[in-house]
Design a protein around this nucleic acid. Structure first.
Lengths: 192, 192
DNA sequence: TTATTTTTACTGAACGTTCAGTCAAGAAAA
DNA sequence: TTTTCTTGACTGAACGTTCAGTAAAAATAA
C-alpha cells in the first residue's frame, strides 16, 4: 500500500472526509477520530499530514474559498457587459458545487468557529472584501456612483450570505431557488 | 445566604453568562466551567438549574428568539398600514437588542450547532416560518399576489439572515447600517 | 414562642469518558 | 538498505456529569 506521492491524495481525502463528517454528524461530533472514519484513514495519519486539528479546519476552509474563487474567475472570463459580470459573480456564489448540502453545512459550521481563530477570520474577511470589490467594480461600470455602488453591493453580499445560511439551515433546500432569488434581486437593482 | 426564589435570577445569570462567554472566548471554549466563570456561579450550580449542557444551550436559544418575538409583537401593534407592518417586522430583526455584538455572535455560533440538535432545529424552523408568515401576510395586504409575496418575503428573509451573519463576522459593524440596507431593500420592493 | 421537619440553594471532590496529540515500530515501495 | 507511509498503543488534560453533603430559610408542630 505505501506508495510515493500520497500527500495530495491524503489531504484531499481528509478535507472531503471533514466536510462529510460535519454534514452527517454535526460540528460537535467532528473529532479527529470521526473525521478519520469518514476519510477512510486513521486519526494518526491525519496528524502526519496536518500540523494539528486546526490545520485540518484551515485546509477545509481554504479549500472551500479557493473553489469559490476559481468558480468566480471562470465565469467572469466569459462575461462581457457589466451586468453579465454581476450575473457571473452572483451565480458563482450559488453554483451547484458551492451550495450542495454538505459543503454549505460545513462552511456554516466552520465559520462559527472563525470568531475564535484568527486565520479563519482572515480568510473570511479576504473573501468578503474580494466579493465586495468585484461587485462594486461591475456596478460602477454599469453607471452607479460610488455610494450607490457600495450600498447595492452590500445588499447583494448580505443576500448571498443569507442564502448560504438558509441553505445550511435547510430553510431553503433547492439550490436553484437561491439562484432565482439572487437574480431576481439583481433585476430589481439593474433593470435590463 | 440561601434565599428563596433564586431560580429565575440564576437562570438569567447563566443565559447572559453563556452569551458573554461565547462572545469573548469563542464557541469552542464555552465549557460549563467557562460559562460559570462569566455567570459568576459554580459549574455545578448550572446543572442544579438546568438538566445538562444542552439544556443551557436550548435556554439561550429560546431566550434569543423570544426576545425577537416580543420585539416584533410590540412594533407590530403600533403599525397601521401594510408597509408600516413590514417596516416594523424588519426593524425588529435588526433592533439594537438583537444585533448587539455579543447577541449576534452567540446566535451565529449556536445556530451552527443546530444541525446536531433537533430542539434547536425546531426553534430555528419555527422562527423562520413565523417571519415568513408575517411578511407574506403584510405583502398580500399591500397588493402582492401569492407568488410575488412569497418571493419577496424569501428575499427579505435571506437579507435578514445575511445581515445577522455579516454582523456576526464583523463584516458589517454598525447596527444602523444593517437597518439602512434592509429598509433600502424594502423601498426597492414597495415604493411608497 | 420554641422545636422540628421539609424544602431550596449551593458546593467540592471524584467519576468515567473522550479528546488532541506523541511515539516507537511495522510494512511496503524505491 | 533506505525512505516513505502507516499504524496501534499510549498519555495528560479537559470535558460533562454525579453525588454526598452543608447551610439557611420556610413550613409545620408543639
Amino acid at each position: 500500500m505505501p506508495k510515493v506521492g500520497m500527500e495530495p491524495v491524503r489531504r484531499r481525502q481528509v478535507i472531503d472526509g471533514t466536510i462529510a463528517c460535519i454534514h452527517s454528524e454535526g460540528l460537535g461530533a467532528a473529532s479527529l477520530k470521526a473525521i478519520a472514519r469518514h476519510a477512510g484513514v486513521t486519526p494518526t495519519l491525519i496528524l502526519h499530514y496536518f500540523d494539528d486539528k486546526d490545520g485540518v479546519i484551515e485546509a477545509v476552509y481554504r479549500d472551500l474559498y479557493s473553489r469559490l474563487a476559481a468558480e468566480t474567475l471562470t465565469r467572469l472570463q466569459s462575461a462581457q457587459t457589466p451586468r453579465a459580470r454581476l450575473v457571473a459573480i452572483l451565480e458563482a456564489q450559488v453554483s451547484p458545487q458551492m451550495v450542495s448540502k454538505d459543503v454549505v453545512t460545513a462552511w456554516f459550521a466552520l465559520s462559527a468557529l472563525a470568531s475564535d481563530k484568527p486565520t479563519l477570520r482572515r480568510m473570511e474577511r479576504i473573501n468578503a472584501a474580494r466579493l465586495m470589490s468585484n461587485m462594486i467594480h461591475a456596478l460602477r461600470m454599469a453607471g452607479f456612483n460610488r455610494s450607490e455602488a457600495r450600498a447595492t453591493a452590500q445588499e447583494l453580499m448580505a443576500l448571498v450570505y443569507g442564502l448560504w445560511t438558509l441553505l445550511a439551515h435547510g430553510t431553503v433546500d433547492r439550490p436553484d431557488a437561491a439562484r432565482y432569488i439572487l437574480l431576481r434581486a439583481l433585476d430589481g437593482r439593474i433593470p435590463n
